[in-house]
Simulated scan of single mutants.
Amino acid sequence: MTSPRAVIVGASHAGAQLAAGVRQEGWTGEIVLIGDESLLPYQRPPLSKAYLADKCGVDELAIRSADFYAKQRIQLVDATVQSIDRAANHVVMSTGDTLSYDKLALCTGARPRRLSIPGADLAGVHYLRTATDVNMIRGDASPGVRVVIVGGGYIGLETAASLRALGLEVTVLEAAARVLERVTAPEVSAFFDRIHRAEGVTIRTGAAVEALVGDERIREVVLANGESIPADVVIVGIGVEPNTDLASAAGLHIDNGVVIDDQARTSDPDILAAGDCASHDMARYGRRIRLESVPSAGEQAKVAAATICEKPKQITALPWFWSDQYDLKLQIAGLNTGYDEVVLSGDPTRDRDFSCFYLRAGELIAADCIKRPRDFMFSKRTITQHLAVDRTELQLARSA
């Protein structure tokens, strides 16, 4: 009798956690973790922060040591999976080899959304998703270089902070009316706008990029209004798209990601999914959501591991996120979609710490907490337990 085999496609946060979780939940058979990078599975959030700012080496980003995988009998394979044969229960790899599975987990993550404008393929135009991407950026980011960042979301602003720490001239171009417009209240946007300008970043909002111009290498960024901005390096941070091609070709249900149920199962009971590539109905919000969040990837992976081992759990944790910029840690609890009221604790126009609480029909649904860890923990507990809140209490500082 052959040993059962669990195959995990994608070796980032979700994949690494799932591999460890399957073994922890009691899987005695083989575990194969397939990734398309030669590095050990590593943490991605520091890429735009400490790693880009040259404050740590790539070895320090490893989620777990090589010894861990060896001791847990987790086989790491550096390859790309090209297709899934659900009828035969095997995957076909870039090497041409096939690998059978009893259970398959898709942790294929997401890829940066590409610019589709003239000049987007010029040398010096970068995206930031992998350690290799950052190495290429650092190779171009020598002192005196003018960097233009397209996109004023979290990746764009984190990258701006890291490059300013290296002493580079940085301009952020945001097509919307304010930075972080899709994800935060105007007060939070204004706060980060103020902080970045004080640190020497040039921020342009309402700045739609029409073309990138250069001979072979980027020389300038042309805006829709005809203005040209000199640039030696361009970094594009305009969001990501889930990697669903493999799942879609295999006939799995796709809806802004690989659709999973609350036990991380796809439309095929032998295939699970977790992380940035997965979307699921969240009862808390009454809709299907795909979360781009390390904590959510970890929780989904733990649930998937339990499901594989027939110890069903459910995806129930409150979504939360974080962002590090300069000396500031932003911690976000919940999703603020549909808020109808904002309550502030602290003064975002003057302070370097404050909290922004989002309410809907009087109930706390989310919070952005900058250098306010106590507010963050309070918010997570209050939102999770649907506790009543007093607006006056929310306004009281909790940073002490």
Rank of each mutant, 00 (worst) to 15 (best):
P4Q: 08
V7Q: 00
Q24Y: 05
E25P: 03
E25W: 04
T28E: 14
T28C: 10
I31L: 10
L33F: 02
G35A: 12
K49N: 02
D54E: 15
G57M: 01
D59A: 10
D59I: 06
A66Y: 04
F68L: 06
A79W: 00
A79I: 05
T80G: 04
R86M: 02
H90G: 05
T95S: 15
T95M: 10
T98D: 12
D102T: 15
K103D: 03
A105Q: 07
A110P: 10
R111N: 09
R113M: 08
L115I: 05
I117G: 11
P118Y: 00
P118S: 00
A120F: 01
G124D: 01
V125W: 00
V125H: 00
L128Y: 04
V134H: 03
N135I: 02
G139A: 06
A141M: 12
R146S: 13
V147G: 12
I149C: 08
G151T: 09
A160Q: 04
V172F: 06
V172C: 09
V179Q: 08
L180R: 06
E181H: 09
A185C: 03
A185L: 03
E187V: 11
R194C: 10
R194T: 05
I195F: 09
R197E: 14
I203G: 08
A207V: 01
A211S: 12
A211E: 01
V213R: 14
V213T: 10
E216K: 11
R219Y: 00
R219G: 12
V221I: 13
L223Q: 09
L223D: 04
E227N: 09
D232G: 08
V233R: 06
V234K: 11
I238D: 05
E241P: 06
S267N: 08
A273I: 12
Y285R: 15
G286C: 08
G286V: 01
R287P: 11
R287V: 05
R288H: 01
R290F: 04
E292P: 13
P295C: 11
Q300A: 08
V303E: 00
A305G: 08
A306C: 04
C309T: 08
C309W: 07
E310I: 15
P312E: 06
W322Q: 15
Y326P: 08
D327M: 04
L330E: 00
L330Y: 01
Q331D: 02
G334S: 07
N336A: 15
T337I: 15
E341P: 10
T349E: 14
F357D: 00
F357Y: 13
L364G: 13
A366Q: 05
C369T: 14
K380Y: 02
I383H: 11
A388N: 15
D390R: 12
T392F: 05
R398A: 14
S399Y: 15
